[in-house]
Design a protein around this nucleic acid. Structure first.
Lengths: 211, 211
DNA sequence: CATAGTTTAAAACATGCGTTTTAATTTATA
DNA sequence: TATAAATTAAAACGCATGTTTTAAACTATG
């Protein structure tokens, strides 16, 4: 049956590729429509605005990722003893499953998420909270189970340190991988960065608070 | 003697305030000259370009901060046993000294640095490396002394995780402090975030590597 | 087949940006 | 004080952006 790619899908795919590489603000509608080989005005016809297009691009991934993450967290939540490391490991499987959305999906999604958070777009933050606020709450709950000694406000800050390190690594991932390859002769696949990141994050969250 | 503020200084001060609040790209020359109450063209007359203005704003802080940091690192370098925590504590005093540049200097500088790194501006990266590359090398050397078990490439990645967490915290600092105050009723001064950040960073860098 | 509805196409619009140009004005120098 | 230089002022330039408009082309339906 495979019908030809619709204009709407061509736009989504081109936008996703460019957004993941250069960020949302840095990508113009003209770049997107040129890559998609469609007319400029069709973006506003199909999506209404650039903001709505950004949300549509993110939604394709979030709708797969968030329920999967929620399930992992819920499963972990049933245990009585939880480590921070286990919490972060909950992200591994949902991330891998994004390969079913698209080849290279996990990396693309993390890049998009990085830019989304980096260019603090109010409308995306709102969208995420409206649709997946429950998942975020469960994440905080599980993290608190893993670190009952941390006060809620300290956990709040550390969770944002975690977000910062993660987001930033993804946004500057390609550049950093180039430098690493040049300086250390060690090629690092995009998905391997997560393996290096998770121990760092867990160590940071578990660190003893200062007097 | 105190002569009136020159146009050049009025531009620098206005630019600094706006850059620290909204970032470099998000701040237009028209906003700057409006706040400074000077003519738009005077920016290009005194500085040549927006890029050069950005560098001039950063230079006022870097010229104070970098030598002070270098001195702290050099002092630590003489010890035989060095902890990661000690390395990050080296940033405290140089940061405090920026209060002499301006009231709120430490916070302003960290915000500027955050945006500078976030909006990966090649010209700023080049400027920093050209002028203060030796300091960065010393930092890496001291960090390696504190963590000889970490391979250079692993240290490279962890250092960038550190940068990511730091930068991001500063860029979204005001927003996060608002949320923290609203959700936990705990007001956090901008400079206190560093106190929460440093243990996290040290814990992350010291974390044991995965098999 | 004819026609109503959907989609694509091309062009223009309105806005904001960094920068440049030209002229007026202030400041310093001899 | 007369003159040259430095600075400020006002306007326009050239370009890129997201969005809107108007007309043409396609597609499905009766």
């Amino acid at each position: 049956m495979a019908k030809r790619a619709t204009t709407k899908d061509k736009i989504l795919n081109a936008a996703e590729a460019l957004f993941a590489e250069h960020g949302f603000e840095q990508t113009s509608l003209r770049q997107i429509t040129a890559l998609a080989e469609v007319n400029l005005a069709s973006v506003n016809y199909h999506f209404g605005s650039k903001k709505a297009l950004i949300q549509a691009v993110m939604a394709r991934y979030l709708e797969v990722f968030m329920p999967a993450l929620d399930q992992q967290l819920a499963q972990l939540q049933q245990q009585s003893l939880i480590s921070t490391r286990q919490v972060f490991d909950c992200f591994r499987e949902p991330l891998k499953q994004l390969s079913s959305v698209r080849k290279g999906g996990p990396t693309l999604f993390l890049s998009l998420l990085g830019f989304a958070y980096a260019e603090i777009q109010g409308h995306l933050r709102r969208y995420t909270m409206d649709h997946f606020g429950a998942v975020m709450e469960r994440l905080l709950a599980v993290l608190h189970m893993a670190n009952p000694q941390l006060s809620p406000v300290d956990m709040f800050w550390r969770l944002h340190f975690v977000l910062g390190a993660t987001v930033f690594t993804q946004v500057s991932g390609p550049a950093l991988r180039e430098i690493a390859a040049a300086d250390f002769g060690e090629t690092v696949r995009a998905d391997q960065i997560v393996d290096k990141l998770i121990p760092f994050l867990a160590g940071g969250v578990d660190a003893v608070s200062p007097a």
